[in-house]
Every structure is written in C-alpha cells, then in structure tokens.
Amino acid sequence: MNRLNIEEPTDTPGQLLAPGVRHAIGAVALVALAALALLGLWGAPPDDRQGEAMRLLYLHVPSAWLAYLAFFVTAVASVLFLWRRTRSMVWDRVAGASAELGVIFTGLTLVVGALWGRPIWGVWWAWDARLVTTAVLFFLYLGYLSLRRIPGEPEAAGKRNAIAALIAFVDVPIVHFSVEWWRTLHQKATVFNPELSAKIEGVQALTLWIAVIAFTLLYLYLLDRRYRLAVLEEGQAERELEQAIRERTGDAVAGVTP
C-alpha cells in the first residue's frame, strides 16, 4: 500500500474492452439503434392485432432480455469473485456495473410494458407472474445497489456484495414460481390470451432482431464504461486516503521539528 503517485490501480485492467473493440461496439450499437428507430417507428407496419402499440414491443422485449442477462452476469461474476482461484476485483466491478444496468433495463421494461398494456389490455398493470417477478427483481437489485454504495475494505466489501447478489439471485425462481402458482390457482389468465399476441414476421421480426442486437451491444458498451468509472473512483478514493495520511504525518513531523 506504499505506492505514492499512483494514477489508478494497476493490478487489474483499467477497462474491460480494448479501446478499439469498444469504439467498434459503440459505433455498431449507434448504427443499430438508428436503424431500430427508423424501422420501429416508421418502417415496420402496424400489427394486425395490436396496431401501433406493437411499436412499444421493439423496446420492451430487448429491455426485458437485457434485464435478465444483466442479472445473470452479476450472479456469474459474483460466483467468480467468491471462488478463491478466480477472485479478483474485476469480478466485483463487473457484478456492480451489470446490476446497475440491469436495474435500469428492468425499470424500462416495467414502464414501457405498462405503456403497452394500457392500450392493449386496457390496464396499466396485471398481477401476472412475469410482471410481478420483474417488479420484485427491480427492488431486489435496487437494495443490492444500495448495499454496494457503502464503502469498506475492498476484499470484505467484495465478499459482502457477492453473497448479497447470490441471495437475491436464488430468490428469483422462487418468486416467479410462487406468483405463478398463486395467479393460476385463483383465476384463469384473461389478458394473456394467445389470440391477442402479435404474429411477428417479416419486417417486424427483422426490427425485433435489430432491437435485441442493438440493446445487447449498448449493454456491452455501457458495461465497459461503468467498469471504467468504478476503476477511476477506486483510484480516487485511494488517493484521497493517502493524501489524508500524508497531511497527518506531515503535521506530526512539523510539530516535532520547530
């Protein structure tokens, strides 16, 4: 810990992706997002059954996919951190960055889903297993992010975070199962009538695929940036600590020698 003049922690990579790869991913993501906006808002025809509201699914579906992917990445990174042979702060940062993105995409999934549900089902919200599980997921990981924000000695805090992430992850299937059970025991699903689902083909399917690809690339890009920020913030905290120590010891020396 006696390294003075450090710029950033050097024992782990300062970013996940090589700059060239990152720029390429960012550029492709941007082009794909532009294509998505063009196709999703204008190019794709309105759906036979769902009409124009179908256009919200081009955002809702990839958001939901990324929410689940992001939390899965958090769980895997947490396991890799807990396992002694792969323990590295890299995994702690990946877990945190991915969870933050997961919470954002979960929030978007819920809000865009509600905006879609209102014209299609006539209600903003339905007590369906998927919806309730997603809402619980949102709060589970919101709590996890709050826990992460509390500083501590890196290794101890990393363990704490990783275990909290796994406790939350184990809960997801139980929540889903219990809510599904609850809803199907008491009533027949009315809003999820298969006759109402969109028949996705042609330009619509293409748009949806572009949406999924664009969002996944955006996720990768943002994950790298969030990781980078975590590295910089750790370096900053370390520097501030060292400066404080230097000031204190400097004072002590000044006090002894007149």
Binding site: V136, F139, G143, S146, L147, R160, A164, I167, D171, V175
Partner: peptide
C-alpha cells in the same frame, strides 16, 4: 439473520435492512 450480518456495522443499517429483506421475503 443473513441480511442482518451483511448490513451489521454499516452506516444506514436501519434504512437499508427493510429494502434488502422485504423483496426477498415476497414468496
């Protein structure tokens, strides 16, 4: 107990604990 020890000794324990525990206990 699990979340209690996770949050033990941390600042903000009183406010953090309900947010962590209640969603997990939904089932």
């Amino acid at each position: 107990t699990l979340y209690g020890v996770l949050a033990a000794g941390l600042r903000l324990r009183e406010t953090l604990l309900p947010l962590l525990v209640l969603p997990v206990l939904a089932p």
